[in-house]
Design a protein around this nucleic acid. Structure first.
Length: 1199
DNA sequence: GAGCACTGC
């Protein structure tokens, strides 16, 4: 290796000083401007000193490559031999390599494998003044490492700015090397002083000020400003002048133009890319408006901001330096010198401007301890550190927020081994779990690089059109996949030159596509080495998005219900970037890959997502807010409304959840209060029923005794349960499983002690009895303590058939418990002249009550008798005014039938009148109905010999439940006919086959309708309608399967209308037919009991039944047609094909009408009853119908 | 309704 030094280079003069310093010090700082030769000469000096493992870092890959090439040339060795370079995707080094050019990022990454940097004896950190994250981290790391590696030499080079700080940090000597650049004249031209209208005008004025020869570099802050300026300057039509834009996202071909030869003058309008990354050749003049977009991290919203800011003095001098490389230069600053001098000296180092998650993750995986103790040159502030920690926690890389960045999780450790941004690394790990790593590798790689889609200034529309082919409706991420597949396909099909041409024609950036591919391969390889399973692309898009989401939880947004703006984390408001496929139709909820604040906050690369995904992926971050905890009797648990929020974004607005696991204390409290204390629970636990009974008993006692102070309060009951029910019982389910065990030990644990409930009097049942005994019958009594209300006091239930016969005088006595009060009030109700003989009434009353004979039939007479006996006052029974008594001292009558209340009141005579007039009204209607329809009601007299007022024997007993109020109460034949109809209706419903009780009820209802039907309807028509409605409602409700039953019910009804002696036979015939068709199973109606009902019902009102039956028979073909529509076609066809079935029914219709006209009803009754008896006897079905064989036999005998 | 520039086992 040839080591020689170019005497023309300024550094050569300091060669010996530098060599000496490196010998004597572990760290040396070399300060020198561009052109000093430090970059190429320093490694040679180190080599000369015997150093054979030199790492020499550069901020950019391209620099590492070109420095290595130049060095290899100078040393006359092959690149990759003694001198080599290693950058991402490209390692040109070998065993022999002594000088290794690397990017600082790569050296940093090497730490993961080689914590001591043991493969190097020398590290040169070049361009340290750039202060990238990597450089700052490396410097801090070296500071810690050097004491442990005394043999390691470090050289730090920097532009002459701020070198003292590096020297101080390492206690190192500074060797200054002069630059070899041409002088640059600085002119300050603030727009205010030149009279320029705006920045563009100021630029134009500066251009005019400069000579016509020599290229000009103008620094702009962004793409849009460059576009505006290009248009503006083109408009000036400078002679022989070419205007060229230059910025990072520029199409490759356009960027290359700055390197091409050109006639005349060139004005390059560039972003900061020209300040460090790209050297524009041949620049003589610089125009510097003094602004740049600087990336900053927003403290409040935790997003990246790109504000336009005045640049620092260091940046300004860097810009000026761009025109002193080939000859003397002029730099025109469009601001004043005072402005310049007042600006910050240096641009803030990157570590103070970005999220620290990535650094923190690396530090944690390198076990570097607390970041606060790490020797950063410019330590990040504590808020920035906690932001970084929070992001790592969000990603699941740290297990707790408060471990100072330590406490790396398994996921975190694996993330740190993936060479990509923490968010992206998280996505890869999630993808592996979800089985979509193949797809996510492609997407993550795309997100790691600059957008491969080009958008040349002058052909934006054409480019957009080309790119639109890859667009996916709900996801920009999927567009990457589509593009990837397309590129893969094309690359396989085309030659490499054809492929490059395709890229150019279709606005794809070839170099970035290669980068995409390289990143993908590297990530895929690393993933495989980690044991992940990449697989292929083509997984379920939902899974892909769920994987991506786990890296983008704080980049979720919920759109305004009407608008385009999204509510993001921490109340950030953002919009989808216009370049996105989702910008026009923004979905309700999205995630975005990037959130960057420029003019406003933009979300770039977006996809539609589901809130449930966020809830799941962000389970460690979401907030649950609960409201309205309440007892749900149905669920047997406490329920609450749940709201789920992620960083303040509502994911779930209102969800009903079990509250037990959330707040067991409150839930248990509500469970005890509602389920146990208030009894809002349906359960079979014995203690519960017993306690309920006890409480009900006490409450009833309160009503009876007219007191409100007997029952213990709920708090006492609560305390009772609270002491016994364990803390973890928060619902009926918890209770049941606890009680299953607990009751074995003490079954009475939860049963109330009656003593604790009340201390009511022992003789309550005698004073306030639950039953009233009179005439050998007993009537239930109920009590109400509701002063002022009509029913206040005692109510007696009076069955309607006792209404006429009961002795109402007995009730004047009232219950013993109220008798003294009753007598007191009766005394007070006397006319004054009598009343004054018994003052005070309250003292006389007990004595009178004592003396009265409780067996006396009439209270008034007995009381009057006793009063006369007491002091000779002549009181008549009529002198007492019962009407004036307070309501609770007069019994209320409640007239009931089958437990249903018909009427109530305190005066029996009135009740009796009301009920009979009600029935008469019904009867009048029926009489008119009979006239209109010609239908005849049953002539009761012919079959019922023994109906008298209040006493009905024989027939009504037979009809049993079918009997009615009127039948039992009234005694005229006409009135009874109504009762017959009612009873018949009831029986009709019983007569139906049991599988269709709905039909039975429908007909019952219908019979009632019949009684009140309007003048335009006749009975047959109404019953017809009823049938149809019942059938339809049944079929609608139950569908096809029920249809069979309905059909059967129908047939049964129809057959029933035929001669009763054929009934059973006919039913069997029908069943047999249907069975032959494979449609029905035998139905219980074939049993004798059912048939008996059929016969009975039709005996009672044969005319009615006959007509209804005829109508139904006529309908039969219609029913069949309906059946055809509803049943499977083949079956129905078969059914319809059975022509003789239909014919038979028609024939029977005819015979039925003939028969009906001839047959005298009475005879049918006898006949039928005989039949019934025989049938019952023969089949020994004692319980088939609620009449016993004995009763039927008795009835037949009576007839 | 439109964004500075870099970098990585």
């Amino acid at each position: 290796m040839k080591i020689s030094y170019d005497p023309a280079l300024p550094i050569t003069d300091r060669h010996d000083d530098i060599a000496a310093a490196m010998r004597d010090h572990q760290v040396v700082v070399v300060a020198g401007e561009t052109g000093s030769g430090k970059t190429t000469q320093l490694p040679k000096i180190a080599y000369e000193l015997g150093r054979r493992a030199i790492a020499h870092t550069q901020p950019r890959r391209i620099a590492a490559r070109s420095v290595a090439k130049r060095l290899a040339d100078e040393c006359e060795v092959d690149l990759g031999a003694e001198v080599g370079y290693a950058v991402r995707f490209d390692d040109q080094t070998s065993e022999a390599t002594a000088i290794r050019l690397v990017t600082d990022g790569l050296l940093l990454a090497e730490l993961q494998r080689d914590r001591q940097l043991s493969r190097y004896d020398t590290v040169i950190i070049d361009e340290a003044h750039e202060r990238s994250l990597s450089i700052d981290f490396l410097l801090g790391y070296l500071k810690q490492l050097l004491p442990r590696r005394p043999d390691l030499k470090v050289v730090i080079t920097s532009a002459t700015i701020d070198v003292e700080r590096f020297a101080e940090m390492f206690d190192a000597p500074i060797i200054e090397v002069s630059g070899r650049t041409y002088p640059v004249e600085i002119r300050y031209r603030p727009p205010a002083e030149t009279g320029a209208d705006d920045e563009l005008d100021a630029i134009a004025q500066a251009v005019s000020e400069l000579p016509n020869e020599g290229d000009i570099l103008v620094f702009m802050s962004g793409e849009r400003e460059i576009r505006d300026a290009t248009d503006y300057l083109n408009g000036k039509k400078y002679p022989r002048t070419e205007i060229l834009p230059l910025f990072g996202r520029l199409a490759a071909a356009d960027q290359q133009k700055i390197f091409s030869n050109h006639p005349g003058r060139r004005i390059v309008l560039a972003t900061n890319v020209a300040e460090t990354s790209l050297t524009v050749p041949g620049i003589r003049y610089v125009i510097d408006p003094g602004f740049a977009r600087i990336s900053r991290f927003s403290q409040r919203l935790k997003v990246q901001r790109l504000p336009i800011e005045p640049i620092s003095q260091a940046s300004a001098s860097q810009r000026a330096g761009r025109c002193g490389r080939v000859a003397d230069g002029i730099c025109i600053r469009l601001y004043s010198e005072e402005d310049h001098d007042s600006r910050p000296e240096f641009t803030d180092p990157e570590i103070q401007r970005t999220n620290l998650a990535s650094v923190l993750l690396q530090m944690a995986s390198l076990d570097l301890g607390d970041i606060k103790d790490f020797p950063f040159l410019d330590p990040p502030d504590s808020r920035a550190i906690s932001d970084g920690i929070n992001l790592l926690y969000e990603l699941g890389a740290l297990d707790a927020k408060k471990s100072g960045g330590r406490g790396l999780t398994k996921i975190g450790r694996r993330m740190s081994t993936l060479p990509t941004d923490p968010r992206l690394a998280r996505m890869l790990l999630a993808a592996d779990k979800l089985g979509c790593l193949g797809d996510v590798l492609v997407i993550v790689s795309a997100m790691s690089i600059q957008d491969p889609r080009e958008r040349p200034l002058d052909r934006q529309q054409a480019a957009d059109e080309m790119h639109r082919r890859f667009r996916e409706p709900d996801s920009d991420f999927l567009s990457y996949l589509t593009l990837w597949k397309y590129i893969r396909e094309m690359r396989d099909e085309l030659s490499s030159s054809a492929f490059r041409r395709l890229c150019r024609d279709e606005f794809l950036h070839w170099l970035r596509i290669r980068e995409w591919h390289d990143v993908h391969s590297q990530l895929r390889r690393t993933a495989k080495e980690m044991g992940l399973k990449p697989g292929t692309v083509g997984a379920d898009p939902d899974r892909v998005h769920q994987a991506l989401l786990s890296g983008l939880l704080s980049h979720v947004g919920l759109r305004d219900t009407d608008g385009r703006e999204y509510l993001g984390a921490r109340q950030a408001k953002f919009m989808i970037f216009p370049g996105s496929g989702l910008a026009k139709k923004p979905p309700r909820m999205v995630m975005v890959a990037e959130l960057v604040e420029t003019g406003r906050l933009w979300g770039r690369t977006a996809a539609k997502i589901q809130p449930e995904w966020v809830e799941e992926a962000g389970a460690h971050l979401v907030n649950h807010v609960y409201s309205e905890p309440h007892w749900s009797r149905r669920r047997g648990a406490v329920m609450a409304r749940e709201k789920v929020l992620l960083f303040g974004i509502p994911l779930v607005a209102d969800r009903l959840v079990q509250y037990g696991r959330i707040d067991p204390v409150v839930s248990r409290d509500l469970f005890i209060r509602h389920a146990l204390v208030q009894g809002e629970w349906r359960t079979h636990h014995e203690f519960f029923a017993a306690n309920q009974r006890m409480i009900a008993g006490v409450e009833e006692l309160e009503e009876r005794l007219r007191r409100r102070d007997l029952r213990v309060d709920d708090e006492t009951l609560y305390a009772f349960y609270d002491q016994r029910v364990p803390a973890d019982v928060v619902s009926t389910r918890h209770f049941d499983s606890w009680w299953k065990q607990a009751r074995r030990k003490d079954p009475d644990l939860l049963t109330f002690d009656p003593a604790m409930l009340s201390d009511g009097p022992a003789d309550a049942d005698e004073e306030f009895p639950r039953e009233w005994h009179s005439d050998g019958e007993s009537y239930p009594l109920t009590y109400a303590f509701e002063p002022g209300m009509q029913d206040d006091g005692v109510t007696v239930d009076l069955p309607v058939d006792r209404l006429l016969t009961v002795d109402d005088r007995a009730f004047d006595w009232h219950v013993p418990g109220h008798r003294v009060e009753l007598v007191t009030e009766l005394i007070r109700s006397l006319p004054k002249r009598l009343r004054r003989e018994f003052v005070p009434a309250g003292q006389f009353a007990p004595r009178l009550v004592e003396a009265m004979a409780p067996s006396a039939p009439d209270l008034s007479e007995e009381l009057a008798r006793q009063m006369r006996l007491l002091n000779g006052t002549i009181v008549s029974a009529d002198d007492f005014d019962f009407e004036s008594l307070p309501p609770h001292l007069r019994v209320t009558f409640r007239v009931v039938e089958d437990g249903v209340e018909l009427a109530r009141g305190k005066d029996l005579a009135t009740l009796r009148r009301e009920l009979s007039s009600h029935v008469r009204a019904d009867l009048t209607k029926v009489a008119r109905q009979e006239e209109r329809t010609g239908l005849r009601s049953w002539d009761v007299g012919t079959i019922e010999p023994t109906i008298t007022a209040g006493q009905v024997t024989g027939y009504p007993a037979l009809v049993d439940e079918g009997s009615s109020v009127a039948l039992r109460v009234l005694d005229t034949a006409a009135e009874q006919s109504v009762a017959m109809v009612k009873g018949q209706a009831r029986l009709l419903s019983y007569a139906l086959p049991t599988p269709v009780p709905q039909l039975g009820r429908a007909l019952d209802l219908h019979a009632k309708l019949l009684l009140s039907t309007g003048p335009h309807k006749d009975a047959a028509a109404v019953i017809e309608e009823c049938w149809l409605a019942a059938l339809e409602s049944l079929v609608v409700r139950h569908g096809g399967p029920v249809w069979d039953e309905v059909m059967f019910g129908l047939l049964h009804e129809t057959v029933r209308a035929e001669a009763y002696d054929e009934t059973e036979q006919a039913v069997h015939a029908v069943i047999a037919t249907l069975q032959a068709l494979g449609e029905v199973t035998p139905l219980p109606s074939t049993e004798a009991g059912e048939d008996v009902r059929v016969q009975l019902s039709w005996l009672i009102y044969p005319g009615f039944i006959r007509d209804a039956g005829v109508a139904q028979l006529r309908r039969f073909p219609l029913y069949l047609q309906a059946a055809k529509r509803r049943l499977d076609a083949p079956l129905t066809d078969d059914l319809l094909a059975t022509q003789d079935l239909e014919a038979r029914f028609h024939a029977r219709t005819a015979s039925l009408s003939t028969w009906a006209r001839l047959a005298p009803e009475v005879q049918h009754v006898r006949w039928a009853l005989e039949e019934l008896r025989l049938s019952l006897l023969a089949q020994n079905l004692r319980t088939a119908f609620p009449v016993s064989v004995k009763r039927v036999t008795a009835l037949v005998d009576a007839l």
